[in-house]
Design a protein around this nucleic acid. Sequence first.
DNA 1: ATTTTTAGTTGACTTTGTCAACTATTTACG
DNA 2: CGTAAATAGTTGACAAAGTCAACTAAAAAT
Lengths: 153, 153
Amino acid sequence: MSTIYDICTMNQEKVNKIRAFNRFYTRVIGLLNKYLNDSHYTLPEVRVMYEIYHHKQITSREITELLSMDKSYLSRMLLSFDKKGLIKRKTDKTDTRAQDISLSAKGEKEFLAINRSTENQIAELLSGLNNQEVEQLIVHMDGIQKILSKISN
Amino acid sequence: MSTIYDICTMNQEKVNKIRAFNRFYTRVIGLLNKYLNDSHYTLPEVRVMYEIYHHKQITSREITELLSMDKSYLSRMLLSFDKKGLIKRKTDKTDTRAQDISLSAKGEKEFLAINRSTENQIAELLSGLNNQEVEQLIVHMDGIQKILSKISN
DNA sequence: ATTTTTAGTTGACTTTGTCAACTATTTACG
DNA sequence: CGTAAATAGTTGACAAAGTCAACTAAAAAT
């Protein structure tokens, strides 16, 4: 918990630089997500698929926690995945209220295709940079994650 | 323009690290924007106010370009700002189709209040870090902006 | 002078996301 | 044990965010 004193003595310029970065990176992320317009899936759908894929077995509740997503929103999304045959759901053995969700063969195929095109898009973006710049970029990104992980619970 | 060759030889791990950072930072930005729920304004509204404030005089078209925002969406937003007395609009002297938009005294007051609370929120976030960490964070952020500015048109 | 482009508005719509109420379990606890 | 409280997921109703196309009026291009 910070005090008024902390906030007031905090260098204004530093805060402004961080805000500038946030604005800048919001645009970067926006650009990178633009490609999704051409895919059959929306950004939140892809995020959900990502979680299912990387957990192999996951419950609704876990997804809502991981993505800070409303459970009703997710419930409807999973229904649409189900209709499209992208997921399998089976009742959890130790808690019959919960379902273990996993990607079907079709779902996995779809996800991996999206995944590849995201990767290609980033690779394409990076192709405008030389090797050293890419290395530096990653160093900076790791650095930010390391520092901010301390505070983001 | 990148070639297939570039993409295929691009280190997969680097691409994955960048994607991981994007996911991470999407969450950070999401957390920072959460506070807006308590404000009277939405995120896109604040962004528009930001642009009006920092240009003193700006047209609708310029805002749509700066924020990649649909002109109909913006038009309605400006209408609501107008109704709330947050902006002044006057016909541009050299192009009577266009309007020069600026914040009213009330609008400026509102924007500055939002601005302060965003600043405080970031300052509060940073209060969990020591001086050196904050310095490092800014170095990394500047680094990323410098590198990515080369390519993001 | 007329066609084409542009600035902004409006109508109709879709997507995205939220909130509260509900059912069916499970867990906590006297 | 048995009842109360908490939890997993669904559903209805809605609000917020964003898009698309058609339109008016003015400006720019030809």
